[in-house]
Design a protein around this nucleic acid. Sequence first.
DNA 1: AGCACGATTAACT
DNA 2: GTTAATCGTGCTC
Length: 207
Amino acid sequence: MPRSSRLSRSFFARPTLTVARRLLGQRLVRIEPDGARLSGLILEAEAYVGSGDLGCHAHVGRTPRNTVMWGPAGHAYVYFTYGMHWMLNVVTEADGFPAAVLLRAVLPQEGLGRIRRRRAGQLPAAWTDGPAKLCQAFGLDRRLNGHDLCAPGASLFIERRPPVSDSIVSIGPRVGLNTVPEPWKSKPWRFRIRPDQADSLAKEVQG
DNA sequence: AGCACGATTAACT
DNA sequence: GTTAATCGTGCTC
């Protein structure tokens, strides 16, 4: 029996809200080109659901930028914004339906030296507590766009961890949709581990 | 070819 | 709380 297993395509090929909620507490793993392993427990995720969701990039239709979202589940949708930031999403639902989960925060576990270097000048608590921060810390950019997280030998994937209890999860509106109209702006599609519970999550981790 | 803007962050007041 | 930074993207001309 392997000590850890990777989330398979069937995990991601489900309703996006389900995937977003169940990704909490799972472990994002990045194997860098030189073999270094970075990882962190997912603390925050948001659902972006189809072209009818005016907060989702897919609402403008299929473009070169967002085309990965129309593809099969379990692939990384990595996009660039604000002239300097990369964001990591995991594609969800059926092939042909554009949807994804934005990973917004992780609790660093492995590769702390490299993460610290990439996030130089920042306190540890600010290393990976935002979607662009975690991409910077993990060295994720356009090279990972379209990457299959479920493929054997993937350099970016998610390891299965025990599900987290509803008691440590908070749900609220998505962040940063300033110009998105209602009701999309206020849909409670943001899921996160309560900040005061992140430590207890780390303690139950054995390795 | 030009333009407005963004699923953010860090550094301000 | 406010705002500059910075450029790929998608749209208009």
